[in-house]
């Protein structure tokens, strides 16, 4: 039994040090998100290129503004049009769109004072899937974007 507990503790400690390392690394907003395994190289194309991605972000904001769990946060922040534009840039960069530049603040700087909870973050994830369905984007394609955006949880969720 003793050896078993030692094994568990040793595993837990070595993994938690790895985790702390990963959590400390800032998610890159200026380049393609690296995931394990990598997102499929044609994800941007499958999303319909610039036109499709732009519509997807509009769809996402449609569902966010209809979502009583979170719409008040976005309303209070204001400038919805600018939020949409920045998000259009962000997701395009994340999926490796050529010649697109993200002009917003870093995710952690932009959300630092907002006290976002994981429940609120997950509400946006659920709205993201709804936006995919609106655009008839297959679940598998949608998951490429979800994989790319998931690590932002560490920058955005502060509670």
């Amino acid at each position: 039994m003793k050896s078993f507990y030692k094994l568990v503790l040793a595993t837990a400690f070595s993994l938690s040090s790895l985790s702390a390392f990963a959590a400390g690394s800032e998610t890159p907003e200026g380049k393609v998100q690296s995931t394990f395994p990598p997102i499929s190289s044609d994800a941007y194309e499958k999303f319909g290129g610039k036109y499709g991605m732009d519509r997807w972000v509009e769809g996402l904001f449609k569902y966010i503004m209809l979502d009583n769990r979170i719409n008040y946060i976005f309303t209070a922040h204001g400038k919805i049009d600018r939020q949409i534009k920045l998000n259009q840039q962000l997701v395009a960069v994340m999926l490796g769109a050529p010649g697109v530049e993200y002009q917003g603040a870093s995710m952690s700087a932009a959300h630092a004072e907002m006290g976002i909870t994981l429940t609120q973050f997950n509400a946006v994830v659920e709205d993201a899937y709804l936006a995919c369905e609106d655009l008839r984007t297959p679940y598998h394609t949608c998951n490429q974007l979800i994989a790319a955006l998931a690590p932002f949880k560490r920058s955005i969720v502060t509670r």
């Binding site: 595993t11 938690s16 985790s19 998100q33 394990f36 949880k153 560490r154």
Partner: peptide, 19 residues
């Protein structure tokens, strides 16, 4: 749950671990 986030740690190979 000891460590890890099976969903959000998609940029690392670190799994979610529980005892």
């Amino acid at each position: 749950r000891v460590l890890g986030e099976s969903i959000y740690d998609s940029d690392t190979l670190i799994p979610q671990v529980a005892i």
